[in-house]
């Protein structure tokens, strides 16, 4: 996150292991935006090589690689007692694969296709969970979010949010400065429970409510609506 504002999160070092060059570059660009450092690999061999030489904060791992299954990276990390948090990004959405990956040391599992905003939120959640299990407070200017207690303070005054508003605020903070599409928000809030196109109206309602609550608590208006496409949370 932004250095200086959130003392818990420094600049992070990522290793992106993904054989699809276009996807790899997009992820790197998106994550780099916060001053993080991203390195990329397109194969298992390259990944093991980099992991042998350098230490990373977080590894984004595709399971289907041209020279083998990404599970080998998890094995490597576990055998070498490494601390990197691992987020699997795989096209294989089957439950077996998820369970297998989580059992051998992955921290989270994201099924392709995904929105970059979702990826960013997950990566931060995974990293935070692994690193600061005791101190789970995110601070953004006057907003302070307690992840454990699921509560929000504005200038030290507690604010009551619904579950969806809370999730949305967290999602915005994780992706501050970025335009987040309505699709990405809908998928984040409702998952694939229901068809996404039913929910655009709700997003509007939820955001309107969240914005009103924040402003009533004397918080700055950080949420900008971008015509038709989505929202941007920006200081």
């Amino acid at each position: 996150m932004v250095g200086g504002i959130d003392p818990n999160l420094k600049q992070l070092k990522f290793l992106i292991i993904e054989d699809e060059a276009g996807l790899r570059q997009n992820i790197a660009d998106y994550l780099n935006g916060d001053g993080n450092i991203c390195e990329c690999c397109g194969s298992l061999k390259c990944a093991i090589g980099k992991l042998s030489d350098y230490v990373y904060d977080c590894v984004l791992l595709d399971i289907g690689l041209p020279d083998g299954e990404g599970f080998a990276v998890l094995d490597f990390l576990r055998n070498n007692m490494r601390n990197e948090s691992v987020l699997i990004i795989s096209a294989k959405g089957s439950l077996d694969d998820k369970i297998k990956a989580l059992n051998i040391g992955a921290d989270d599992y994201l099924t392709k296709p995904f929105h970059l905003a979702e990826l960013k939120a997950r990566v931060e959640a995974v990293y935070r969970r692994k690193t600061f299990s005791s101190n789970n407070i995110i601070i953004f200017n006057e907003i302070s979010v307690d992840l454990h207690g699921r509560s929000v303070d504005i200038n030290g005054v507690s604010l009551t949010l619904t579950r969806k508003e809370f999730d949305m605020l967290l999602y915005f903070i994780a992706n501050k400065g970025k335009v987040i599409s309505k699709n990405a928000i809908a998928e984040h809030l409702w998952g694939d429970e229901m068809d996404v196109h039913d929910h655009y109206d709700f997003i509007y309602t939820h955001i309107k409510n969240l914005r009103k609550k924040l402003m009533d608590a004397n918080c700055n208006d950080y949420i900008k609506s971008l015509y038709g496409i989505g929202y941007k949370f920006t200081a």
Binding site: E20, G22, P113, F114, H115
Partner: peptide, 20 residues
Amino acid sequence: SHEMMTPLAVITTKLDTLIQ
């Protein structure tokens, strides 16, 4: 599914990047 999901992921992430 893998083969189809990856191009879909590329489309989605490219769009996510484009709207920035």
